[in-house]
Amino acid sequence: MTSIGTGYDLSASTYSPDGRIFQVEYASKAVENSGTAIGLKVKDGIVLAVEKIIHSKLLVPEANRRIQTIDRHIGLASSGLLADGRQIANRARSEAVSYKESWHEQITLKALADRVGMFAQAYTLYSSVRPFGCSTIIGGVDKSGPALYVVEPSGVAYGHFGAAIGKGRQLAKTELEKLKLAELSAREAVLEAARIIYLVHDDAKEKDFELEVSWVCDETNGMHVPVPKDLLEEASRKAKESLENFD
């Protein structure tokens, strides 16, 4: 890496001569090495799915969740350092609460992504802090319908139709592009999301993984909840089947 040894990568408050902030780029590396997370914005809602790598067989199943709830109608999937993802989620929760205190109305996804982006960006300005080593997909349904945003360590927050972060993002994005997202129902999207996670998971290199899927849609009454057990099992089963057919 060109940055190493130059001295320009020691602090987030220093630019390199060509205008880059290496600490932010290193933070992105933390995301690139982490399990994949994807988000789908579909006809009647959003679906979040995560490939949670199981580092040890001693871990309790379903512990260390990487999908968190921000408000009744908003979910957040993170990729990268899990603890940083929790910090972001906590901030997002306070933003949602403070918005509601001010306006007596649930926060919109756009406003939330903006605020979380500003929060992440503040950690790219000072030598005393390090940027967040995680990207987050924020998804939900607000008064103007389903919405999906990605907030990166640099603080940028872009809206997406489909989003993928983490190790398998390239392949996942290709798969997402093939889907007619605007015509899918959330229930169908759960199956697709599971299929993509199973597809991008590298059996040869990676350890076991746990599939985490959550959704916000008409079926959930606009609430962000994990998909029901039977649907998750069905999605996993079908995902595995499609992989076998694929091989």
Binding site: Q68, T69, I70, D71, R72, R93, V97, M223, P226
Partner: peptide, 8 residues
């Protein structure tokens, strides 16, 4: 109740 819900 919202806070309680977000704990999941």
């Amino acid at each position: 109740t919202t806070e309680e819900f977000t704990y999941g």
